[in-house]
Simulated scan of single mutants.
Amino acid sequence: MQRANAELVRSLGAVRVIDYTKEDFSASGHTYDVIVDTVGTAPFKRSRGSLGRGGRLLLVLATLWQMLLAPWESAVSGKKVVAGPASERVEDLRFLAKLAQEGSLKPVIDRRYTLEQIAEAHRYVETGRKRGSVVVMVSHG
């Protein structure tokens, strides 16, 4: 993991940053309250032993099979597996807006593109090297 990436993750509040190219989190013996799998490499089978009591696994890129198994895995393990699309509730959006107004919510924007550059933006995202959100700006003309 590049030093800049590790610093970014720490600045977002991570207590411990793991360089997945040098360390296998599932073999370290450490347990975590939350594991967020953003790239599909930490399914429940691999993460189960690294989740503490009542821990949560968030599968951002879940397969259909993982989404179907999540309720069962949660029920039998005592650990919460969250997979699939997020539900949108008005109260959640209001809460996020409040955090943003207070400055507590700090989005990470890697790059900005105009609508005319959308193909370039898509190519950049597909590299798997983005370090935050990629924003496509639409002007009202």
Results as ranks from 00 to 15, higher is better:
Gly49Trp: 05
Gly49Phe: 10
Ser87Ala: 10
Leu57Gln: 00
Val135His: 03
Tyr32Glu: 02
Gln66Ala: 14
Lys98Glu: 13
Ala86Thr: 08
Gly103Val: 02
Leu51Thr: 01
Arg94Lys: 10
Thr41Gln: 14
Leu105Trp: 10
Pro85Thr: 10
Thr21Glu: 11
Glu116Gly: 15
Val9Lys: 02
Val36Cys: 10
Thr41Glu: 11
Glu88Gln: 11
His30Lys: 15
Arg46Ser: 11
Gln117Asp: 14
Val39Gln: 07
Gly13Ile: 03
Val108Arg: 14
Leu69Phe: 05
Thr114Lys: 15
Pro43Glu: 12
Val138Pro: 00
Arg89Trp: 06
Asp37Gln: 11
Gln66Tyr: 00
Leu105Ala: 14
Val15Gln: 12
Phe95Lys: 14
Ala70Tyr: 02
His122Ser: 09
Leu64Lys: 13
Ala62Tyr: 01
Ser133His: 13
Ala86Tyr: 05
Glu126Met: 08
Val76Thr: 08
Ala100Pro: 01
Met137Ile: 14
Ala100Met: 14
Ser26Ile: 04
Tyr20Thr: 15
Leu115Phe: 15
Gly40Glu: 13
Phe25Glu: 02
Val81Thr: 07
Lys79Gln: 14
Gly55Asn: 03
Ala86Pro: 01
Ile109Glu: 00
Ala86Ile: 10
Gly128Asp: 10
Thr38Arg: 11
Val90Glu: 13
Leu12Asp: 01
Pro43His: 13
Met67Lys: 12
Phe25Leu: 15
Lys45Ile: 05
Thr21Ile: 06
Gly54Val: 10
Leu69Thr: 00
Leu115Pro: 03
Leu68Ala: 11
Glu73His: 15
Tyr124Gln: 05
Glu116Leu: 13
Val136Lys: 05
Leu115Lys: 09
Phe25Gly: 05
Leu61Pro: 04
Arg123Pro: 03
His140Ser: 09
Pro85Gln: 08
Gly103Trp: 06
Asp110Trp: 01
Gly54Glu: 06
Arg10Lys: 10
Lys98Asn: 09
Asp33Ala: 09
Ile109Val: 15
Arg123Glu: 14
Ser139Val: 12
Val125Leu: 14
Tyr124Ser: 01
Glu73Asp: 12
Gly128Arg: 11
Ala42Pro: 01
Glu116Ser: 14
Ser104Thr: 08
Leu105Val: 09
Asn5Gln: 05
Arg16Glu: 15
Ala86Asp: 01
Gly40Ile: 15
Arg10Gln: 07
Gly103Asn: 08
Leu64Trp: 04
Thr127His: 08
Leu57Ser: 00
Gln66Glu: 15
Pro85Lys: 08
Val76Gly: 02
Asp110Met: 15
Thr41Ala: 13
Met137Asp: 13
Arg131Trp: 02
Leu57Gly: 01
Ser139Asn: 12
Leu64Gly: 04
Leu93Arg: 11
Ala4Phe: 02
Ile35Val: 14
Gly141Ala: 07
Glu120His: 06
Pro85Glu: 06
Thr127Lys: 03
Arg112Phe: 12
Ala27Phe: 02
Val134His: 00
Ser50Gly: 15
Asp33Glu: 07
Lys45Tyr: 06
Ala62Ile: 02
Pro107His: 04
Arg111Ile: 07
Leu68Val: 06
Val39Asn: 11
Gln101Gly: 07
Val39Tyr: 07
Leu58Trp: 05
Val138Tyr: 11
Gly52Ala: 12
Lys98Cys: 00
